[in-house]
Each structure stands twice: as C-alpha cells, then as structure tokens.
Design a protein around this nucleic acid. Structure first.
Lengths: 117, 117
DNA sequence: ACTCGACGCTACGAAAATCGTAGCGATACT
DNA sequence: AGTATCGCTACGATTTTCGTAGCGTCGAGT
C-alpha cells in the first residue's frame, strides 16, 4: 500500500455527512453529488450486464484514465454499489437496484434524440 | 500548446454527435455526459417545483458559482430541458419528463442511507 | 431625475478534478 | 526465461470548477 499517505483525503459522498453543495448531507444530495461525478453513471451503466475486469471496464468506458476509474470505483465500493468479485467488478444488489432506476434513461434518450434529427 | 487564438468552444452534449467518452454520440451516452456534469442533476432537481430566478436557483444550489450555473443553464437550454420564462427558469415538458425519471432517486437514497446509520 | 434593489450574467485568478501515458508488482501459463 | 494479463499507481498537462467582484438593465419608490 503506502501509496504515499496522500496529503489530502478525498471524501466520497455518503448520506448523513456534508457533501459538496449541501451541508445537510441529506441522502438525495449525497446521491446527486456521487452521480454528478464524471464516469460514475457510465460505470454503473457498463456494469449492467456481466462482471468486468478493471481493464475491460476501462475499455468499455472509452479508455477512461485509470486514475479516475480507480477513484470512481473507490467511491462506488465505499458507497456499497460496486464490489470486486472473482469474475471482476460487478454491481452489488444495492447497485442493481439503482441501475434499475437508470435503465429507463436509455429509452428516454432515444426519444430525446428525435428532436435533433 | 497551440497558441491558437480561438477561445476553445465548449460543446454541450447533444445526441447524435460525439461526446466525451463516446465517439458514436449514441443518445444515452450524450445524456450520461450531460447528467455527469456537476450541478446538472441538482439544477433539474431544484426546478421540480415552481420556476426560480437565476439568483434563487443559485441559492437553492447552495450558492453555486454563477459562472458554472450559467454554463449549465446554457447546456440545459440547448438540450431543450430548461427554459427562461417570465417567472424565471423552469423545466420544459421535455425536462419534466426527465425529472419524472429522477424523482424515485429520493426514496432510493433514503433507503440507501439506512445502511450508514 | 435619482437612488435603490433585484435581475441575468460576465471576468478572472485560484483551486480542484480530470486526462493521458508510462509503468510497477503480482500472478499465471509456456 | 519469456509473455501475457491482472489491479492499480505516478505524475505532469489540461480542463473544469470555484469564489469573488462587478457590469448593464430594469422597475419601484421618493
């Protein structure tokens, strides 16, 4: 490990504690903070099917920088939405229940796109 | 390093054109790019009720920096999700239909929070 | 007319997040 | 030994976000 004991601790958003943009830490605000970080929703989206290795996930996310991917996976693991299994990274049951809320976004986006054709 | 004099235009994510993290421009990827920008989901969330003035919206979003707020409002207006009316900023019908997909996040977050108490 | 306050919004330097590339140590198979 | 993949780290460059100050406009009040 060591990892140089970072001089600045990055705090993943969790319900019940102050997050960016909300001193109250109301759960929905913590969630919006988490989901508003780049690649977070995309990662959840790409894990909708089978488990993916770190590298496969990186490829699925258009070769996202590994430092950011690792940071996001840390956030998501801390939040209890993602876990690393034998087969690779995958959604926890909690993560799957959140994914279920996101799935309708696909069809919505398709309809949205028709306005731009 | 280009000494280019062009002010580097920021392109809001729209379906059908390449966006950050997806050369294809598939609608859902454009949407995830848009929603993954900071404050975007929060802005939609805060506009779930009545129309809000720029300043009221800024206050609702915990005094977010006006430059970022304006940039996001530009993205959202270009995307056809938000419009400026007499009464202030408000969601378009399109934006309201997206909000409807987001509303369940509140209850989900409440349940999520119970794991951390 | 003049001040006052609120409006949408811009400027700009500082700080933080993100990116891109290279590579490490471990493990496994040849 | 050589090759390949694994999760993951380092670190400088770039982009985004932040924080504060303030501009120009408008309508209400005096």
């Amino acid at each position: 490990m060591s990892a140089g004991s970072s001089p600045k601790r990055r705090t993943p958003p969790l319900p019940g504690r102050p997050v960016r943009g909300s001193a109250t830490g109301r759960p929905v605000m913590a969630l919006l903070d988490l989901l508003g970080r780049r690649w977070v929703q995309r990662i959840i989206w790409e894990l909708r099917g089978e488990a993916l290795s770190f590298r496969a996930l990186r490829t699925a996310c258009d070769e996202v920088s590994p430092s950011v991917l690792n940071a996001r996976l840390g956030d998501l693991r801390t939040a209890g939405l993602v876990e690393l299994s034998e087969a690779g990274y995958r959604l926890t049951p909690e993560g799957q229940s959140l994914l279920r809320l996101m799935l309708p976004l696909h069809d919505w986006a398709e309809r949205w796109a028709r306005r731009w054709r």
